[in-house]
Design a protein around this nucleic acid. Structure first.
Lengths: 334, 334
DNA sequence: AAATTGTTTGCAAACGTTTGCATAAACTTC
DNA sequence: GAAGTTTATGCAAACGTTTGCAAACAATTT
């Protein structure tokens, strides 16, 4: 095995040309004659040559790396166990790859609070995709103000000086609630923490639907986890009995936690209680009864997130954008 | 806002010392007087200075980046939607962070087949963590032979020239099957594709348990997804009726897919059919009935994976290692 | 006070690319 | 065939760190 790492200059020597020529050839620069280009590219492939990214990043001041950070509230367990967020990260990765960009997976532990410094000044990444607004947008705002090219997955209706891509949470919350009401529910419970930006919007949609139907709203504010939902619903049933006949859950995981609590008490879904979630994670389809939900189009959102980030890197000013949602009717809310 | 990116030399000028001194001070090199070091570190913080990683990587030939790649079989849907793999990635990230390392999320799309070149020669990363052995280990073997520092999450009993960290899949498969048999099952079905390395081991454990009980084995080979499991079990029930009274599923997602199929036909779990999964994803606890499973200790595995990789980077020869599993008894297999 | 030792800092040469500018070669055009 | 134009390549200077070695300074010993 040829252990010696080849450099541009070695390749140049082998081909009898200058390093400039090789460099240009490998970057497909039309300054170099097509024939020469192809010859050099073949040579590079043959010798298993690959450019030293450190050197080229230093020289070009570009990394072709995008940092993705899952923006967690310190006090929630949602985090790394939420299938929805992880799926989103996976799809962002694919979207980045299509543009030849790489994904640096980050978190607040590494980046602490000064994102400008950590990501941009240090030239770790060219830009930043923040997944989740969390409860506080201070960090994001500071980074955006300091000139970090960034886009955020969150609620696009939030007032902000940075572009946010996300679903129409208000509409989703309203549609789901309306559906429950239309099918006879009188007391729809909102299950989730409205302090969270995206969930707050869903809650607003819920409120509007409820008040339009002249029903009374009812919130159970919990952490965004299935366990919290399970415990919360259990407790509520113990305390007040079955005081609702519909649940608009702020996420599928939360809905599934609620579902378990209901099933354990032989409360029929959807007959006694209609249940609708949000996200359309793969478990929604596989639960029993299958879970009605508002599907967020993560694939499309990922593509848009990346496009907007690239536009920003190209110096354009970009705006927030809503990604269409879809109501998926399954068994839990017939 | 101070837009001009500070360099080492600027900071040096500000402090009235040489760049060497600043560089050493920021790296906490004891050659520099403690007092000077602290002064310079304060100065750096005050001016929001941070080192250009591209430059320092070029100079030191180290990146402090580890590439993590989810090794998918092209023909399976398991991939990015499998909560277990994603959770593992999340925990590997945390484990890396503790050592000051960053995670580059990669996949076969970017890295194609020549991992040496893509990751190491190009100095994108110092080492590689491969999540999943897949059905073919050719790529991994080639990379290991070519000297890529790498560790693999998979079945540690597989013969290999690279270290594998993973659960005792044989034992897990055996324990779960034994439990089903002990509780009266006569016909335990193995649900999963034994061609997959880890699953093959679980299958061996299953086989041994079954033959020890003088029962007859029965496999339904399917893709590692809940959907495939749902369809597979449905089809089997249509074709042959309820020809089993226990299912050893190769993963929790698969088990949950099977669970849905059973519940839809009012087949009682665990009375008619006992069901045990593998992984202990968060849904296992929240399903109804809750899913008995073999818990894989991903957190510990992640820590070990990183330690082994670091040892390898330090030039040590490291071996495969088994991470303990735990049988979690829940309702689905009483 | 000179010589020796130990401590702290600075000089300058790398690391391996990319790219503006200069040059050389090959064609046009008058 | 000289001058201009186009095309293809090479020269050499960056990019911003780190680090071996030398130097300066301080402390100790002779």
């Amino acid at each position: 095995m040829n252990d010696k790492k080849l450099k541009l200059v070695d390749l140049a020597k082998l081909a009898g040309v200058s390093t400039s020529t090789v460099s240009r050839a490998l970057n497909d620069n039309p300054l170099i004659k097509l024939e020469t280009r192809q010859k050099l590219q073949r040579l590079a492939k043959k010798h298993n040559f690959s450019l030293n990214t450190a050197a080229s990043r230093l020289r070009t001041q570009k990394t072709n790396v995008i940092a993705v950070m899952i923006n967690l509230d310190g006090d929630t367990e949602q985090s790394i166990n939420d299938p929805f967020l992880l799926k989103l990260v996976g799809e962002i990765n694919l979207a980045l790859n299509k543009h030849g960009l790489e994904l640096l997976l980050s978190n607040s532990f590494m980046a602490s609070d000064d994102w400008v410094n950590y990501f941009i000044n240090s030239r770790r990444a060219d830009g930043l995709i923040v997944v989740g607004q969390g409860k506080s947008q201070a960090n994001i705002e500071a980074a955006a103000n300091a000139g970090v090219p960034l886009v955020v997955w969150g609620d696009p209706k939030t007032e902000s000086n940075y572009p946010i891509v996300g679903s129409d949470n208000y509409l989703g919350g309203r549609l789901a609630t309306e559906r429950l009401l239309e099918h006879g529910a009188k007391n729809v419970l909102f299950l989730g923490d409205p302090a969270h930006a995206e969930i707050g919007e869903r809650y607003r949609g819920y409120l509007d639907a409820v008040s339009k139907a002249k029903a009374t709203p009812n919130v159970l504010s919990i952490d965004i986890t299935s366990k919290a939902a399970y415990q919360g619903i259990n407790q509520l049933l113990v305390d007040k009995g079955l005081c609702f006949d519909g649940i608009m859950a702020c996420s599928d995981m939360v809905a599934l936690g609620a579902m378990k609590a209901l099933k354990e008490r032989y409360i029929s879904i959807p007959n006694d209680v209609g249940l609708i979630g949000f996200d359309d994670i793969s478990m929604a389809d596989i639960s029993h009864p299958s879970l009605s939900t508002i599907k967020q189009n993560t694939q499309r959102a990922s593509i848009i997130l990346v496009e907007k980030l690239l536009a920003q890197l190209a110096g354009q000013k970009v705006n927030s954008q809503v990604v269409e949602i879809e109501m998926i009717n399954r068994q839990s809310s017939k």
